[in-house]
């Protein structure tokens, strides 16, 4: 349900960047979404497609880049993808795990012309 606001932020940043770079239109918007975000891909795409109408991104494709949840165990040093949403070391079961990836929600790049 909050995907609409996020899609609007994505569009705002994409359009601002495109204008700063003298673009006429945006052909593609690539977004990195970490697993730890409560984001539904279909809802985000739906919102993006609805909001892009009548903007310079009207024909832009939406590139959704899934980022897995990975962590480094502070006890045994093991680095790996984490199982489910458990921030637990798969090797020694310690909870002292630093998240390496999976929190991202960022615009990676745009293609303009």
């Amino acid at each position: 349900m909050h995907e609409t606001g996020i899609a609007q932020s994505i569009l705002d940043i994409a359009i601002k960047t495109a204008l700063e770079n003298g673009a006429k239109k945006i052909n593609n918007v690539a977004v990195k979404v970490g697993k730890m975000n409560a984001i539904d891909e279909a809802s985000l795409r739906f919102a993006f497609d609805a909001l892009k109408e009548e903007t310079m991104a009207a024909n832009a494709t939406f590139e959704y880049i899934d980022v897995p949840l990975t962590g480094k165990c502070e006890e045994c040093g093991y680095e790996s993808e984490l199982e489910g949403y458990f921030v637990l070391c798969p090797k020694c079961s310690s909870g002292r795990v630093t998240i390496l990836t999976g929190n991202e929600l960022e615009i990676a790049y745009i293609d303009i012309e």
Partner: peptide, 14 residues
């Protein structure tokens, strides 16, 4: 066509 790297957090205004 040109590719522009952004790498900016989406909720940045908030």
């Amino acid at each position: 066509m040109e590719k522009i790297e952004i790498n900016q957090k989406v909720l940045s205004k908030n």
